[in-house]
């Protein structure tokens, strides 16, 4: 449904994206995760034709955004972290104004989108009187109009209270499940992406450092704590084994295909006394940190 091909972008010589390629399949909830400044907004900007890439192109439904923006975005909606509206106009009027730049949208269709977003009771009030949660809902309603198949969401839960975050998450899930929408969800919050997305790309300093499913990321490496009598000698023996990385005193991490029992046997044969072997499941946060900030992960 969405394809990015070798996107590269720099602002004033400072690289923001480096050779980014990725693919989003129809009907999936796709997560774009990265800290502030990782390149998420630039990626979204390129997808919407608001930022021009130095190299590469973005395709939506097989149509190039850079060459045929109008056609590519014909069935795409988006909201940014804080959707902006004309505060002095009603929510309804705002929807009419924004959607006029797509097509003449029948009032019935607007009503339907408003109902999905849960704003029916307040849609004729001035947006200036809306809470942050209501603004996000209005943002979502405008992203659904006129008849979109793809929605791009940039930090849509920003500024919401926990209840609002939960409601927004459920709404996105429902749109994906019941309306078959393809959702691209950008966030710097790991927990948000973890709870909502199946497929995730992690960006760090404009580079893609992971592309896959959460499950792939979690089993990619396992950590094991070893209690041995001579750590320095054990370290030498372990370093000789393939797929083992020394993380600290008594801490190692293993490749997915590495068998713990083989390592223990290797230590015992080398004359090391092993009193405890404790496999540890690393949290997603640790995995994320180890990918984006290797030093910080070791400390944590």
């Amino acid at each position: 449904m969405i394809e990015l091909r070798n996107l590269t972008k720099a602002y004033g010589g400072k690289p923001a994206l480096h050779d980014l390629s990725l693919e989003v399949r129809r009907g999936e909830i796709f997560g774009l995760l990265g800290h502030n400044g990782a390149g998420k907004s630039t990626t979204l900007g390129i997808l919407l034709g608001q930022v021009y890439p130095d190299q590469g192109e973005a395709l939506i439904g097989g149509v190039s955004v850079q060459r045929q923006r109008g056609r590519a975005l014909a069935r795409t909606g988006a909201i940014f972290e804080a959707p902006r509206f004309y505060d002095y106009l009603s929510g309804w009027r705002n929807l009419e104004i924004y959607t006029s730049y797509s097509a003449r949208v029948p009032a019935e269709r607007i009503k339907e989108a408003v109902a999905i977003a849960g704003l029916t009771g307040r849609i004729h009030d001035r947006v200036g009187t809306y809470s942050q949660g209501m603004r996000q809902r209005l943002g979502l309603a405008q992203a659904l109009l006129p008849e979109n198949e793809v929605i791009l969401l940039d930090e849509p839960t920003n500024g919401l209270d926990p209840e609002g975050i939960h409601e927004m998450r459920e709404l996105i899930r429902r749109l994906n499940r019941e309306h078959g929408l393809t959702v691209v969800f950008c966030s710097h919050l790991l927990v948000e992406v973890e709870q909502l997305c199946d497929h995730v790309v992690i960006l760090n300093q404009g580079r893609k450092i992971f592309d896959g499913r959460w499950a792939d990321l979690a089993v990619d490496r396992r950590e094991v704590r070893l209690d041995v009598d001579e750590w320095e000698r054990a370290k030498v023996l372990l370093s000789g084994a393939g797929g083992v990385r020394i993380e600290g005193v008594g801490m190692i991490s293993l490749d997915a295909d590495c068998v713990i029992a083989d390592l223990v046997a290797r230590l015992v044969h080398g004359g090391i006394r092993v009193s405890a072997v404790e496999p540890r499941r690393r949290s997603l946060e640790q995995i994320y940190l180890s990918l984006t900030h290797p030093g910080a992960a070791a400390k944590s």
Binding site: G70, T76, G77, P83, R84, F85, Y98, Y101, S102, Q142
Partner: peptide, 18 residues
Amino acid sequence: EDGTMRMTLCRPVSRIRV
């Protein structure tokens, strides 16, 4: 400055038209 232009430019409309 207000960010409403970015919202408008999410739409399949050319900048020249806007």
